[in-house]
Design a protein around this nucleic acid. Structure first.
Lengths: 151, 151
DNA sequence: CCGTATTCTGGAACGAGTCAAGAATACCTG
DNA sequence: CAGGTATTCTTGACTCGTTCCAGAATACGG
């Protein structure tokens, strides 16, 4: 995706087009499921002097605008992805924290009938599959080198 | 549930029976979905001098033993509940953070066929429904008094 | 090109949770 | 029932992701 596309995305969401925003948007698009720190580093490859605060602000703005999605499996720091509004879910590795996309198992719309439960007005069903990624699974119960644990 | 029941639960899990553990177990049973701070306070009603560290340690031990379940919706601190091994899920209020139990929508076992995805060995499917609780829903978009937001 | 509202910089602050060392305690054994 | 030992609890410092703040820089409508 080109810079001009990102510019358009921003404008369509009534967001000002700034260099930090373009850089962060690019970073999120090229690093799916990256955590904030990784995004800061990726952003700085393009724009060496962005402050971490700017990245936090931008991620919040982009999330609020729906241009990126924030995901945060239990025990993990915040992560961001660019796939939005297509109702997919995630598998998370208990051992190394790796995340992969999983398309909705049951159908298009929210996978489970989410309405009228206990009087709650439900607008989204989020599914997280927990398990072991191929690497950690192959490594048996040996601690993975990338180990992060779950809690 | 009585103290003697908790004692037995601990012994069955090969955990030593200590006053802090009994107190924390009691607190979790009587305060479903409470966060750590609330559990510390509840525990101190029975055992005024427990350290927060002891509560953290105990909660970890109980979680590892499967006597309590740790839940942590995105943007929330860790919460604990005593209902375990019955495959239920949760509705979370985006406005005030309230959590309610929801029994599995599709059947007994993990709601969605969680196996062989991308080579991951999946052992659990966790579902979180996001929306507004009756109170916040009724209050329209006015900020709830208990407001916690989501991020 | 100017003015103004928004965004970014730099640095301090916050809070949930963890680490570490020593004191207390549960519980196995004889 | 006492002794020994491994586990657990206390105390207090500390980490790390994230947020708050005030002032400087900037985008962009007019």
């Amino acid at each position: 995706m080109a810079t001009s596309d990102f510019q358009q995305l921003l404008r369509e969401s009534a967001l000002r087009v700034t260099r930090p925003r373009l850089a962060v948007l690019g970073a999120v698009h090229s690093h799916p499921h990256a955590d904030t720190d990784a995004i800061i580093r990726a952003t700085r490859e393009e724009l060496p002097d962005v402050s971490h605060q700017a990245v936090y602000d931008v991620l919040r703005a982009l999330t609020d605008a729906g241009l990126v999605r924030r995901i945060q499996p239990a025990g993990s720091v915040a992560r961001y992805e660019a796939r939005v509004a297509d109702n997919h879910h995630h598998v998370v590795c208990r051992s190394c924290g790796a995340i992969e996309d999983v398309d909705c198992a049951v159908g298009a719309a929210p996978c489970l009938h989410p309405s009228g439960r206990h009087g709650f007005v439900v607008d989204e069903a989020e599914v997280v599959y927990w398990g072991l990624c191929p690497d950690c699974s192959a490594a048996g119960s040996e601690p993975a080198t990338t180990s992060r644990g779950r809690a």
